[in-house]
């Protein structure tokens, strides 16, 4: 007669148990910053490679910024067909939180996980600045720690950052509350209706051009209310996702 031991009590999950994958494509620049942001928010970053055929049991995925495959064809056009992206698309369809930053946003658009596309900035020059954004949707996996209408400041740096979509798609995005971030003060790239970031219908996939992962630690981010380089508004993107994972 076998003695069946009672299962041990389930340990309460902590943020550190949440594994957030950060994908590196050839030409990705900001993967280490994104991984660092995950760590500073209390999570466990997991490095994913573009040629990986599985997601190594991650709970969420960040597609970081850079110039994947040189952006030679179109920004994100070739990355979209990388082996790891097939798994990311499946996981996103299943509800996994996915954040695309800059080049990552372009990849999400090319992969049709988000509508629209990014073309060259209207002023045709590279832009790098501290950008003010209004947070318009706090019901996504990556934004629920913000307040509706709150303005945040995070760095923006891009060449192909002009968000475009047809009028019907833009109306739909606005009508369904899927515009997550809008540029405030100045539209830095000519994006339609000042849109800086959007989400899918479920709210688990978010893409934006500015860089939250560069505003996560005092001393290294944009200027903030407490003085030069004290801005850490980007940290709440990652803590939002970690909390969403803990409470699902």
């Amino acid at each position: 007669m076998s003695h069946v031991a009672a299962p041990p009590p389930a340990p309460s999950r902590t943020a550190a148990d949440a594994r957030i994958g950060v994908v590196t494509f050839p030409g990705t620049l900001d993967d280490r910053d994104a991984a660092r942001a995950v760590r500073l928010a209390g999570g466990t970053p997991v490095a994913l490679w573009h040629a990986d055929a599985d997601l190594h049991d991650v709970d969420a995925v960040v597609l970081p910024g850079g110039f994947s495959y040189g952006d030679y064809l179109r920004a994100g056009a070739i990355s979209r067909f990388a082996p790891v992206m097939e798994k990311v698309v499946d996981a996103a369809d299943g509800g996994m939180p996915v954040l695309g930053i800059c080049n990552g946003f372009q990849i999400l658009a090319e992969a049709h996980l988000l509508p629209g596309a990014m073309i060259k900035n209207d002023h045709r020059t590279f832009v790098c600045r501290e950008q003010v954004l209004a947070v318009e949707n706090v019901d996504t996996a990556w934004t629920h720690e913000f307040r509706t209408g709150e303005t945040i400041t995070i760095p923006l740096k891009n060449q192909d950052g002009q968000f475009v979509a047809d009028e019907h798609t833009l109306d739909e995005l606005e009508g369904e509350g899927r515009v997550v971030f809008r540029y405030v003060g100045w539209n830095p790239n000519g994006s339609r209706r000042d849109i800086a970031g959007i989400t899918n219908a479920k709210g688990n996939v978010v893409g934006l051009m500015p860089h939250p992962e560069h505003a996560v630690e005092v001393g290294f981010g944009p200027d903030g209310p407490n003085g030069p380089r004290t801005g850490t508004d980007g940290l709440r993107f990652f803590s939002s996702a970690l909390n969403a994972l803990l409470h699902r």
């Binding site: 073309i119 060259k120 209207d122 475009v164």
Partner: peptide
């Protein structure tokens, strides 16, 4: 070609 309704910053530069 870029769609007619899409701005073409490269074409404008030229």
């Amino acid at each position: 070609m870029p769609k007619p309704e899409i701005l073409d910053p490269q074409g404008k530069a030229v």
